[in-house]
Amino acid sequence: MDEFSSELYEALVSLDRLRAETLFQQAIGHKPPMQVIEELIVPALEQLGEKWNAGQIALSQIYMSSRICEDMVERVLPSMASGRKGHRHLAIVVLSDYHLLGKRIVLSVMRASGFDIFDYGRMDVDELVERVLADEVKILLISVLMLPAALKVKELRSALDAKGSRVRIAVGGAPFLFDPDLWREVGADAMGRTAADAVAIVHRWMEEMA
């Protein structure tokens, strides 16, 4: 991570919106938006994720800083802009659960990293299967907090398989942190410990699918 990105990280972790905005605007003056996102925002968000994973920063800092990044990026690269990544292939959902913060953080980080992504909100299995098929989603990110919701991913996977869908599923949320084998048990293709992990997983899968 270069000095500029480190400075942004420091501004974000202390929730210094003004400093973050200044750094971002300086960068935008010299480089195209997507390059700034890749070189400045994504490394800072990755470092936030690493610190969160190590228990060194708190969820509240992750949430507020991801919102700051999302706001900055949305202004220069609005949703559905041609420079965005992932059009029409990517969706995020809270499955069979009512705890929305995890999804909100991942959504912010994905958008701040230059992705366009369908936000399905909260859905149960049947409704989600219909939407995934109708939208021809290729990559589905699922956030849960409660164990029963995590176990529903297995039901979803079976239903999608039965319909012939080849969507790749990445899961995240507390049950997967407490049981590192749970994502395999429920038939997911990957598990993210942080929102930055979700970005890396999606990048990797999009390259494989290209």
Binding site: L15, S60, Y63, M64, H99, L100, L101, R104
Partner: peptide
């Protein structure tokens, strides 16, 4: 009030 809006309230 929901986790996200509560965090915003605190800050």
């Amino acid at each position: 009030m929901g986790f996200d809006r509560y965090l915003e309230l605190i800050y």
